Computed example of a mutant assay.
Amino acid sequence: MTRTLKVTDREKTADRLLNSSADKFYDPEVDIDWSAPLVEGLRYTPEHRCSLYGTELWERMTPEQRVDLSRHEVASIASVGLWFEILLMQMLLKEVYRSDPTTKHAQYALTEVADECRHSTMFARMVERIGCPPYGPRRYVHQLGKLLPVIGYGPALYGSILVAEEVLDRLQRETMADEGVQPLVRMVNRIHVLEEARHVRFAREEVVRGMERMTRKELPYQRWLLATTSMFITRSLINPDVYAAVGLDRDEAHKAALANPNWQGSIRWAGERIMKFLDEVGLVGAPGTRAWRRSFLIG
């Protein structure tokens, strides 16, 4: 297995991230004007990132339906992001529980938990403000999610965090730069992107360190767990109930979205950077290959 990434000093990295967190952080309660009116006619995501874009169903939808679908889809993605943030916090606290709390590493993990609390509140407020239900993942995925903080450890734990964070990060970077998207959504995305950069650095280094200690016997489990978790993350981004909310047949639209080359391509595009990293460190491969393909993160 090829390892090309340098293992850096954990405490030095954590100290830099702590200083950065103290220097620049956002309070969504203060930094977002939640009372500002939504702009009539503006989309909530870039049009070409809608799950049905390019399908026959899309061609039959009215312009109003397309905008409304983008509203419900951004609510679904935000509420799924919130669900995973909560799992992430549980996993980080599990790590802190068995660590020395006087280390910078443990203290930064706690700082990240504080960031994620604010992000979760921000996502919840955005969903409420745009008038959508908190879709979240489907019920069986929500129930399965309870297992992740229990069975997750090592590189797969931090790798799962990275897949969720970096897929969202790339989608959000594109959205926050699109002036055709609602200002509220763009601001929420901007805050999340700027603060998540620290979290990504922290998690990437933990993956590298974990892989340096990984035994050949453990590797198949780590690969399987990461691939399976990633599949559930990407497949859950758009809850099928969003289609019924805009007047479409739920099952027909869900099937069309999953088979849509444009939507599959969007997920693959969003995951390009993280998949390259995970492949370089040796976490992409059997027995997780089938799950990776079902996630749309690889072709």
Rank of each mutant, 00 (worst) to 15 (best):
A75H: 07
T111L: 09
L42Y: 13
T289A: 07
K146W: 11
D279N: 14
K24E: 09
W83Y: 15
L17T: 02
D15C: 00
P28G: 00
E64N: 06
D115C: 01
M126C: 07
D279Y: 13
M126T: 09
P261G: 04
V74K: 15
T8C: 14
A14L: 02
L144P: 01
Y97F: 12
S236A: 12
K104M: 11
Y243H: 08
M89Y: 02
M275H: 11
Q143W: 14
T103P: 08
L258K: 13
G271W: 09
K94D: 00
V181R: 05
S236K: 14
L278R: 11
I32G: 01
V181C: 02
G54K: 10
P155T: 00
E73Y: 11
A291W: 06
E47Q: 09
V150H: 06
V67P: 03
R3K: 11
P287N: 00
T45N: 08
H142S: 11
L69S: 04
I77K: 08
E179P: 04
V7L: 14
P46R: 10
F296N: 07
Q65V: 05
Q182W: 03
V193A: 06
V188K: 10
R209Y: 09
E174T: 10
A114L: 11
L57W: 07
G271D: 13
L194M: 13
N260R: 00
Y44N: 00
A253P: 03
V30Y: 07
T215S: 10
T102V: 05
F202L: 00
L57S: 06
E205K: 04
T13R: 10
A177K: 14
E128M: 08
E195A: 03
M89L: 02
D115W: 02
E64I: 03
V39M: 12
E40W: 13
D178Q: 10
E280D: 12
E205T: 05
T103W: 15
P37H: 14
C117W: 11
D68M: 14
L162R: 15
E252K: 15
R71A: 03
R138G: 07
G81S: 07
R190M: 04
R118M: 08
L57V: 10
L237D: 04
N19F: 05
R268K: 12
G152N: 08
D27Y: 06
E59D: 15
Y140P: 04
G299A: 12
G152C: 06
M187H: 13
G299E: 15
Y221C: 02
Y108Q: 06
P155G: 00
Q65E: 06
P101L: 07
L283V: 02
E179S: 08
I298R: 14
